[in-house]
Amino acid sequence: MLETVLLAAVGLVGGIFGSMVGLGGGIFIIPCLTLFLDVPIHSAIAAGLVAVIATSTSGSVAYLRRGLVNLRLAVCVETVLVAGALTGGLVGAMLDKTVLSAIFGGVMIGVAFYMALGRSVLAHAHVDRESVGLLGGGYQDAHSGQVVRYRVRRLPFGLLAGLVAGNISGLLGVGGGFMTVPAMVLIMKVPMRAAAATSSLMLGVTACAGAVAYFARGLVDPTVAVPVVLGVTVGALIGSRLAVRVRQSVLAAVLAVMLFALSVQMILAAAGIRVR
């Protein structure tokens, strides 16, 4: 019973952080499950993927209502994301747990740096004023009241980044938002708010592609996945309300430090050294 409550608590915190900073939450949930609750890495990844679907679904609702999601761009990028996630999911289910833990720890360090440094750089992406083209879009900015229009640039490079993001997502059981958002902003020149909203919608289908492989192989353990999913769903609802009250830069810095500490523990655990 206590373990179930702890699993739900991990999901709750992951859901709050995930929805507040625009990630799926898997990057926080999976190391917590493996390091502190001794959940096997494959079960943790499967639970993480299902949790990402819950975060993405609840997070996308608000973005869709505000007209921030670019549906045309979403289906284009999703095509390569799911292909990458499927191959990643199949490879991940076969990989040795030590190798998987080490890869996860390495990717987490990258995410920690992205959270600490990258997001401020991303906020200054250029916004276009010419014709939006076939894939471009627009939305009404809540603060200025102005209509922000943008054109999608360098689609092939963006799709290539999407394929890599999908692969990492399926392999490690994370949503991949930490890669798709920078790819859309820096490569495709999509404004940050539209990129985060579109990425939030895409995370669900990307995680689904990976989760399907785990589910079909019987690796989704309901005793782990269900409490985490219920916790994440409540957490995502709380996080979306808190997001407007907490400064994003402070939150990103706190999360970066936490992720860095978890990544070091994850790599040490893969090397057989347990630090708690």
């Binding site: 499927l86 199949l90 289908v205 492989a213």
Partner: peptide, 19 residues
């Protein structure tokens, strides 16, 4: 594109179950 996404997901189910 939407159809391709669904086909990849369906492939995932089939491949996953066969594996």
């Amino acid at each position: 594109c939407s159809l391709l996404i669904l086909l990849v997901l369906a492939t995932g189910v089939v491949v996953g179950m066969k594996t």
